[in-house]
């Protein structure tokens, strides 16, 4: 194995002092290989942004070390393309002026044609001379992403790149991130959406309350926890009676769907149908779902990932 392009080694980070002190990272270690799409998955306040801030040289950890291609964060900044969670664009500049500014900061000076190609790639071509203040939230987010790769970085650091986007735009951004991967760039991104991590990331680290509680491919994390398959159905049944069904280990409502963890789906499923019939309730859309990262988070922390 080659040396990792990003190395995080026993990092502790905190904000504030005294009574106001918040320990945001508690002994975090991870490494990202060249060319990976690596996801940091965790709920609000888990420490995702703090970890990226340490990498970006914006936050000084209390102890531990971080390396960007072997360099300390302050020296490695030039290798990163950065999109911060809080989008920081200058409202009074046009899209092209903004791209020129943010590339210049990296001592990169693209030609007009290169800027046009970048904007076309981000579906911003017809907005090139528009002021940032006149763009929609989603368009601004795409500008922020365009800036993150405008300096042609080896490593792209994206903090919640799809949070402000509708489902369609979100998929478009997923495609863009995959294309960065195809170009050989390394991507590290944060998300609290389990499906985003599963769709996009080769490997993920699940982070909760400042600690990494699991690392690996989404499939290996789920497989390693021996989580039972889940029966999913549109139904309204008393949870206590569902939990008492043969094979059922746990039952809960997720959205409007009933979810039943079971060791023996083949016996639990007919029993569920029987219960619904007995109580005279509707039961539809019954499906067996393989466990996912959401279930893994639940199993690891006892709490749901998405509140």
């Amino acid at each position: 194995m080659t040396t990792p392009i990003l190395e995080v080694d026993h990092v502790f980070a905190a904000y504030g002092r005294g009574a106001a002190r918040i320990e945001a990272l508690k002994d975090v270690s991870l490494s990202v290989e060249r060319g990976e799409i690596f996801g940091l998955l965790g709920p609000n306040g888990a420490g995702k942004t703090t970890l990226l801030s340490c990498l970006e040289g914006l936050h000084q950890p209390e102890s531990g070390s971080l390396r960007i291609a072997g360099l300390a964060p302050r020296q490695g900044k030039a290798k990163l393309g950065v999109q911060l969670q809080k989008t920081a664009l200058l409202d009074d500049l046009t899209v092209v002026e903004l791209i020129e500014l943010y590339t210049a900061l990296y001592a990169v000076f693209p030609t007009r044609a290169q800027i046009d190609a970048l904007l076309t790639r981000f579906d911003l071509a017809e907005k090139r001379t528009k002021f940032i203040r006149h763009l929609s939230g989603g368009q601004q987010q795409r500008v922020a992403l365009a800036i993150a790769i405008a300096n042609n970085p080896e490593i792209v650091v994206l903090d919640e790149p799809t949070s402000a986007l509708d489902p369609h735009a979100r998929r478009a951004v997923w495609d863009l991130i995959r294309s960065l991967h195809d170009e050989g760039r390394t991507v590290i991104l944060t998300t609290h959406a389990m499906e985003e991590a599963e769709a996009l990331c080769g490997r993920v680290a699940i982070i909760d309350r400042g600690q990494i509680i699991a690392t690996g491919t989404p499939a290996s994390i789920v497989a390693g926890l021996n989580i039972n398959p889940v029966l999913k159905a549109a139904a309204e049944l008393p949870l206590e009676q569902v939990r008492a069904l043969p094979g059922a280990q746990a039952a809960r409502y997720s959205g409007q769907y009933l979810e039943v963890e079971t060791t023996h789906p083949q016996t639990t499923m007919p029993a569920l149908h029987a219960l619904a019939a007995q109580l005279g309730r509707n039961l539809s859309e019954v499906a067996l779902r393989q466990p996912n990262l959401e279930d893994a988070f639940l199993k690891l922390t006892g709490r749901a990932l998405s509140a």
Partner: peptide, 13 residues
């Protein structure tokens, strides 16, 4: 306040 300084700080300038 807008985070512009933060973004500038993240660049190698």
């Amino acid at each position: 306040q807008k985070g512009v300084l933060r973004r500038l700080q993240a660049s190698p300038v």
